[in-house]
Design a protein around this nucleic acid. Structure first.
Length: 257
DNA sequence: ATGGCGCGCGCAGCGCGA
């Protein structure tokens, strides 16, 4: 089972890239973030035409998440437990043997911003939910744009980013608490190239100079992580015309044996 | 050098992203 995540920065603009990528890479599940579409505008027909089912939670202009899957998408949820939020950032579902959470974690803007406090509150609600769900699902995957670079090795210029949003100790501690509940960052289960990133600023030729960050993650519950046979970042879509500033990430699992 | 680019909205230029 191949499980992927991609912040597309407008699904309307990126639909062609997404369809090409699904056909080439053939993931079983793809979590999308920043669809920026109201539900009425979701391109269900185009996606079903290539063999994927859709679940989505959109809003005008900002945020918006969706899950595309070859298998049926069941028991859909669109909120964190006990955290009512007009911002559409969560899509939970059961897909075959998999419990999936697809997340667009708040960006936080800067550590002195109200949006940063919202980000920390949001992460606390996520941690509380995962804590209450402990041992309920054997195979859980949490995918998405975490807007947190887990370690300095996930940042092109850690000295410049030290203490700033996406790298601040409180955000990294929040991610650490989630991992401590029994999850693994699948990308780090394997040897990977130095300076592996999933996002590059549109400005200043950041992609060409590989000035990026690794902030898009596929986390797997410990039981699921023992089935993980590979994890990759696919930089190809970032090289296309009018790309998203993020590129897809995926992990592959052998659930047969 | 705190901008740079790209998106939605909507028709100018702003808010936002990371």
């Amino acid at each position: 089972m191949k499980i992927a995540t991609w912040n597309v920065n407008s699904l309307r603009v990126r639909l062609e890239h997404v369809i090409e990528w699904l056909q080439r890479v053939q993931p079983d599940v793809l979590g999308l973030q920043e669809t920026k579409l109201v539900d009425d505008k979701f391109p269900t027909a185009e996606i079903e035409a290539i063999g994927y089912r859709c679940a989505f939670s959109g809003q005008p202009t900002y945020n918006g998440v969706a899950v595309l899957s070859r298998l049926p998408i069941e028991n859909i949820t669109t909120e964190l437990d006990g955290f009512e939020d007009p911002q559409r950032r969560v899509l939970g579902a059961q897909i075959g043997p998999l419990r999936l959470l697809n997340l667009y974690v708040p960006n936080g803007q800067s550590v002195d911003s109200d949006k940063y406090l919202y980000k920390l509150d949001w992460l606390a609600a996520l941690r509380a939910q995962l804590d209450s769900e402990r041992d309920k699902h054997e195979y859980t995957a949490i995918v998405g744009d975490f807007n947190i670079a887990p370690e300095d090795g996930d940042v092109h210029d850690p000295a410049n980013w030290e203490g700033k949003v996406l790298c601040s100790p409180k955000e990294r501690a929040a991610l650490g608490e989630i991992l401590a509940l029994g999850f693994k960052d699948t990308y780090r289960l394997f040897d990977q190239p130095e300076k592996s990133f999933t996002w590059w600023d549109y400005r200043a030729a950041a992609f060409r100079r590989n000035m990026g960050m690794r902030i898009d993650l596929v986390l797997a519950s410990n039981a699921l992580s023992r089935r993980c046979i590979g994890a990759s970042i696919d930089t190809a879509p970032r090289k296309l015309e009018r790309p998203s500033d993020h590129t897809p990430v995926f992990a592959e699992f052998d659930l047969e044996t």
